[in-house]
Amino acid sequence: MLFLRRSLPLIIAFAVGMIGILVYYIPHSGAQALEQELTTWYRIVAAFALLLGIYSLMRLHWNRVQRQQSGWGYSFLVFVGFVLMSIFATYNDGQGPLNPQVIDSGPFVWMFKYVQVPADATMFSILAFFIASAAYRTFRARTPEAAILLVSAIIVMIGRVPIGEAIYHALPEIAQWMMDVPNLAAKRGILLGVSLGAVATALRIIFGIERSYLGGGE
């Protein structure tokens, strides 16, 4: 039983990991077809993982409603939104769930257009206020590094609006240069470091050194 619970997952991770690497380097139609098939499999299994996540979220709110914890009414609202949207998705503008999704009409599209999109955009736009207040605290130029950060942010912000050009005609070009040269250099440096780390972590997973994804227990 220990073999099934501990060793088999490690063997599977090693086997599919090696296949995932090898199919990329084999210039044969069979390898490419296998890569495509495996990508589809990956998408299907990952979709089930998403179902697991949604279940966890709904169970959390269901527990709150069941135990009538403080604010349980708001958790009930999560179910209202979820059930309504799910019914509309299943209805699929009269086509039913066993047909391709209708994406230009029907109650599902209405909910998406008038509930999800405005809420999404508003949630993200609220961050503008919080970022501004954080900037006030962060951008006090107490050290040379903080001063560089402050000047860089101001040039990029002012350079991207019409008033920037009115203040100094070359400001938009300076802002663009900052994005294209020093910003790119730092981003590239970070990306190289992150990529090396990602490759190392992936190799650790394939060779069974990193096994935290198996969870605890036997």
Partner: peptide
């Protein structure tokens, strides 16, 4: 665990050559 091993292992395997090609060499 078998399902997680498949997703994590395959994800790791597919990501290595792509990360090397797109993020390391291309940069």
């Amino acid at each position: 665990r078998i399902a997680f091993a498949f997703v994590v292992g395959l994800g790791a395997g597919l990501s290595i050559p792509r990360t090397i090609a797109a993020n390391l060499l291309a940069q």
